[in-house]
C-alpha cells in the first residue's frame, strides 16, 4: 500500500500543514509537538479550568470536610454522639445552649450536638453515593438499550418509567419502605431504583444523538455487533454525561435520604443522623431550643450545596 503515494502530485507533507489543532485559545500549546500527551492535554486543560473555578473549590472543600467527618470523626470530636455529656465537675449537660462547654449545645438527653453533626455525616455519605452509583449504572444500561435499539424496547421501558416518574420519589419511597422495612440496604436499593428512570431518560437522549452520528454508521458498515457499538463506540462518548449525572444524583440522593430519615425511615433510629435528629427536635424550636435542629439542618444544606457546586462546575468544565 505504500506505493499508493504519487509524490509528484501531492503536496510535500512537511509543508502541508494540516497539523494545526483546533483550540479555542490561540495561546494554547501547539499539540503537534507532544503527541503522546494530547489526551492528557485536553484533560489537563479541563482540570486547570476546574481548579480555577471558585465554585468547584468551595464545593470540593465542603464535601471533603464532610468526608473527613464521616471517615475520621474522632479527629474532630472526642465526645461520643450517643451518650449524654457529663462535665469534669460532674454536671450533666442537658438542653444546654451553644457555649464553651458544648459548641453546638446539647440535646434533650444531654448528647453533644456537635458530635452528632460530625458523626451524622457517616450514614448519609455511605448510603447516598452507593444509591447514586447503582442508579447511574442501571440507568446507563437501560438508556443505552433504549437509545440504540429504539422501537418496542424503548417504548416498553419508557411507558413503565413514565408511570414511576409521575409520582414524587419521596412518596414512592415511603410506600416501598413501609412494606419492606427501612434497613440501609432497602433504602439504598429503593433510592437507586427510583432514580434509575431519570438517569435512563437522560442517557437515552444522549445515546439517540450519538446514534445519529456517522461513526455509528461506519461501525455498522464494518459489521460490528450491537454490543460493541454500544459499549465501545458510544459509551466512551457519554462518560462525561454519566459523571455529571452521578454527581447530580448524589446530591438528590442526600436530599431524598435525609427527607426519609426526617420522616422516620432510617437504618438505625438511634444512630446520629441529621434528618432523624431534625425530626426528633424540630418541635422544640418554638420553645426556644433551636440548636439541636438548626445545626443538622445547616449540615444537610452545606453538604448538598457542596455536591451541587461540584456537579455544576464539572458540567461546565466537561462541556468546554
Amino acid at each position: 500500500m505504500s506505493d499508493l503515494v504519487n509524490p509528484g502530485n501531492e503536496v510535500n507533507p512537511a509543508n502541508e500543514n494540516d497539523d494545526e489543532i483546533e483550540v479555542e485559545e490561540p495561546e494554547a500549546v501547539p499539540v503537534a509537538t507532544a503527541p503522546a500527551q494530547d489526551r492528557q492535554t485536553v484533560r489537563k486543560e479541563q482540570r486547570r479550568q476546574l481548579l480555577r473555578d471558585p465554585s468547584f473549590i468551595i464545593g470540593f472543600s465542603i464535601v471533603l470536610l464532610w468526608i473527613l467527618c464521616a471517615v475520621f470523626p474522632g479527629l474532630l470530636t472526642t465526645r461520643s454522639p450517643d451518650v449524654g455529656v457529663t462535665l469534669a465537675d460532674g454536671t450533666f449537660l442537658a438542653r444546654s445552649s451553644p457555649g464553651a462547654d458544648a459548641w453546638f449545645g446539647t440535646d434533650g438527653i444531654g448528647r453533644d450536638v456537635f458530635s452528632r453533626v460530625i458523626y451524622g455525616a457517616r450514614s448519609v455519605l455511605t448510603t447516598a453515593p452507593v444509591a447514586a452509583a447503582l442508579a447511574v449504572a442501571a440507568g446507563a444500561f437501560l438508556g443505552l438499550l433504549m437509545g440504540y435499539f429504539r422501537g418496542w424496547v424503548d417504548e416498553v421501558i419508557s411507558r413503565i418509567s413514565e408511570a414511576f416518574l409521575s409520582l414524587p420519589v419521596v412518596l414512592l419511597a415511603i410506600m416501598v419502605l413501609v412494606v419492606f422495612g427501612s434497613s440501609n440496604l432497602v433504602i439504598i436499593l429503593t433510592v437507586a431504583g427510583l432514580f434509575t428512570p431519570v438517569v435512563a431518560r437522560t442517557v437515552r437522549s444522549a445515546v439517540l444523538a450519538e446514534a445519529q452520528l456517522d461513526y455509528v454508521t461506519s461501525a455498522k458498515l464494518r459489521g460490528e455487533p450491537s454490543w460493541f457499538v454500544m459499549s465501545r463506540e458510544i459509551l466512551p462518548n457519554i462518560t462525561n454525561i454519566l459523571v455529571v449525572e452521578f454527581t447530580v444524583r448524589v446530591a438528590y440522593a442526600i436530599f431524598t435520604i435525609a427527607t426519609l430519615a426526617f420522616l422516620g425511615f432510617t437504618g438505625d433510629a438511634l444512630r446520629a443522623d441529621w434528618g432523624n435528629d431534625i425530626a426528633n427536635t424540630y418541635t422544640l424550636i418554638q420553645a426556644g431550643q433551636w440548636w439541636p435542629t438548626i445545626f443538622p439542618s445547616l449540615a444537610i444544606a452545606a453538604l448538598v450545596i457542596g455536591v451541587n457546586l461540584i456537579a455544576d462546575s464539572l458540567d461546565k468544565a466537561l462541556k468546554s
Binding site: 494540516d18 503527541p35 494530547d38
Partner: peptide, 13 residues
C-alpha cells in the same frame, strides 16, 4: 505522520 496516529479527531484540522 506517526504522531497524528496518537491524536484524537478534535486535535486535527
Amino acid at each position: 505522520s506517526e504522531h497524528h496516529l496518537d491524536m484524537r479527531p478534535r486535535q486535527l484540522s
